[in-house]
Simulated scan of single mutants.
Amino acid sequence: MDVRKKLEILADAAKYDASCSSSGGKRKADKEGLGSVEGMGICHSYTPDGRCVSLLKILLTNFCIYDCQYCINRISSDTARARFTPAEVVRLTYGPGVPRSQAPEGDALEEMWGTYYASTFNPARLNVRAMRAEMPKKHWATLPETRLIPELVRQAPERTSRMVSPKLELSESSRFLPEHRDLASLAHAARGCRACPLHERATHMVFGEGPAGARLMLVGEQPGDMEDREGRPFIGPAGQLLDTVLASVGLERGQIYVTNAVKHFGWVEGEEKQRLHVKPGRGEVLACKGWLEAEVAQVKPRMILCLGATAAQVFLGPGFRINLSRGQIFETPWAKAWMATFHPSALLRMPDERARAQARIHFEEDLRKVADTLRALG
């Protein structure tokens, strides 16, 4: 594999949070250093402009021997891999010096570096004050990427807004919506929904529940086995974990509107006739979107918390990644504050006890942040 191909693979891999913190590692940093995460894997920190600084960039490889649950570069992932030998690194970084008059006018690697820098620039994490402190302008003349910074900073608000702008997609369930759209009428009409094939095997259409005018709306992926049998959202093991954490941060389940992105349980038969959860496809999520939009319009929550990537992608599109944006708060057209975190069932399914414990800590931190945000919103 030639050097340019290796650079392309690593530049693409560097767009993602190559980090054990994606699986629940505790982030920490001191005032002098870059920062780190506890545990092992491709650990990282963030620069003031939001770029991930990790072994991916320091050692120039995306090979990792660990299988962190949410990392794109985990060992079980089929992502393309590349690594540089020490000799290649030396050739990339050092060469014989020449007088300025003999130096070439252009530099192909500088152009490639500029492309890489721009592609990993995260507008949602932009902190101009910190950037100026960490990257004083007196050094800009020697840094090829600095010519891009003014335009990247100028575009940041618009790019961030596009990240959270509504996606105009026609939902098949829209044709089942009733004329009067109070929550009771919506729940009644939803029982007759035939927008996707999931209704054929489900026991109940599990609509959301909670008070109209609730300040907080929780959106999960789809009902589980117990929810399908009882016709109520979040009453199984994941719901019990959710209730426990909600209570620990001072949030009352009875004051929250709880629903799912998909209203019917998708499953396959396992051993001993167990009904095993099947993640809904993009088509099924879109087919059910009309119900969720109607719920949001009726509840008018001050804050929406999405549990898991499927729920978050209904709002922000298929490009949303929990491991990149978990715990970040956005102002959106649907609510003054919007955030995504792990689905509680993901915590229950983690096979590694240590990773599960760390993820539980992050989940509790995120819900505590939700409680604090609601208090700040008044």
Rank of each mutant, 00 (worst) to 15 (best):
K28Y: 14
E353R: 03
R100A: 07
L218E: 00
H277L: 05
V128E: 02
C306R: 08
E365P: 02
E269L: 06
A156N: 09
N323M: 06
V299L: 11
A124E: 07
W338R: 04
T120H: 01
R125L: 15
V258M: 14
L316E: 00
P301I: 15
E269G: 02
V268C: 03
R154N: 07
L168A: 13
M135C: 09
G220S: 00
P333S: 11
G220Y: 00
G283S: 11
M217W: 02
A337P: 00
G210A: 06
M303V: 13
M112V: 10
R162E: 15
M226C: 03
T310I: 13
L186V: 04
G254T: 02
C64A: 05
L109A: 07
P136M: 13
A312S: 15
L374P: 12
S173G: 09
D225E: 05
R147S: 15
A340H: 04
A214W: 03
G236C: 10
N127G: 00
H362W: 06
R253T: 04
S101D: 09
K138L: 08
P351K: 09
L251F: 09
R215W: 04
G25R: 07
M1P: 09
P86T: 13
T203W: 04
K336N: 09
M112E: 13
A297G: 11
E110H: 10
E269M: 08
G319F: 08
N122Y: 08
I304Y: 06
H139C: 04
A335G: 03
T61I: 07
G41T: 08
A355Y: 11
S161M: 10
P166L: 14
G192Q: 14
R83P: 00
R154H: 09
G308A: 10
D2Y: 08
P144N: 14
R282D: 09
V278N: 08
T61K: 03
P150T: 11
L170C: 06
L177G: 06
L276G: 01
Q155E: 12
E331F: 02
S22W: 03
H277R: 07
M40T: 08
